[in-house]
């Protein structure tokens, strides 16, 4: 389904850049100008500019902007420490916190008319998920060496032929479930909003869905981060 109006795409079209008509273009420039790419860049620029504006000069007595960020970063830090301990948090905080901020902003941006959520494309969510998935294996190997493979062998040697395929399937399923959950929820929100706008936009029909959309956006960002933390903790655990 065509998204109603995307203002970055319109600006780019006026500038003479090719905008793909399907979900993904054919040439490189068309692929770079696909809406989910341009809105990903928009989200990145937004986060950087807001960070720079509110945190330009750090003060001992924080002002409004600094207070806001201190609450958010402090809250996330507490949450990660509760779930995966101080050491791992210090190592991985930049990555997970960036993911959390990016996903939350990217989900919420789709509620404004003229914008779309970059996370409503499977390419974005799959990219995020692959990074998390590979990282959790790297953490496992660094923490346990090759003993990490014992995670996949089940509790006793007799059960190895049974447990090995099950564990491998359950592990690969993480890749699928993590990406498709985020993609499905946000895509459903976007599509529903688009259809309601087309049908009865003049009578404020999309309003209730927008309220639910705020909840879904925040909860999905939180679920993604929570599961990332859980996977990292599990692969960091000692093998017995």
């Amino acid at each position: 389904m065509e998204h109603p109006i995307l203002f970055i795409s319109i600006i780019l079209e006026k500038l003479g850049l090719p905008i793909p008509h399907g979900p993904v273009g054919h040439t490189l420039i068309e692929q770079l100008c696909a809406p989910y790419m341009t809105y990903t860049w928009f989200t990145m620029i937004f986060l950087m500019v807001v960070g720079k504006l509110t945190l330009g000069n750090l003060e001992i007595v924080p002002g409004k902007g600094q207070n806001f960020w201190e609450i958010i970063i402090g809250g996330m830090d507490n949450f990660f420490v509760e779930n995966m301990g101080r050491d791992l948090t210090d190592k991985l905080f930049p990555m997970i916190a960036t993911f959390a901020l990016y996903i939350a902003v990217a989900n919420l941006i789709g509620l404004i008319p003229g914008f779309m959520s970059p996370t409503s494309s499977i390419n974005t969510t799959l990219a995020l998920t692959i990074i998390v998935w590979i990282t959790h294996h790297i953490i496992g190997f660094r923490a346990n060496g090759f003993a990490y493979l014992k995670h996949f062998l089940g509790p006793m040697p007799v059960l190895i032929p049974l447990m090995l395929p099950i564990e491998i399937i359950a592990n690969v399923a993480r890749l699928l479930s993590l990406s498709i959950r985020l993609f499905g929820n946000i895509m459903a929100k976007e599509t529903l909003l688009g259809i309601l706008f087309l049908l009865a936009g003049a009578y404020f029909a999309p309003l209730p869905i927008m309220i639910l959309g705020v909840l879904v956006s925040l909860v999905q960002a939180m679920v993604f981060v929570l599961l990332t933390v859980v996977y990292f903790t599990q692969s960091n655990e000692h093998v017995h």
Partner: peptide, 13 residues
């Protein structure tokens, strides 16, 4: 909230 998706994804894989 993710129980359903995890279950289905394992079966699909």
């Amino acid at each position: 909230g993710h129980i359903g998706f995890t279950f289905v994804a394992a079966i699909f894989v």
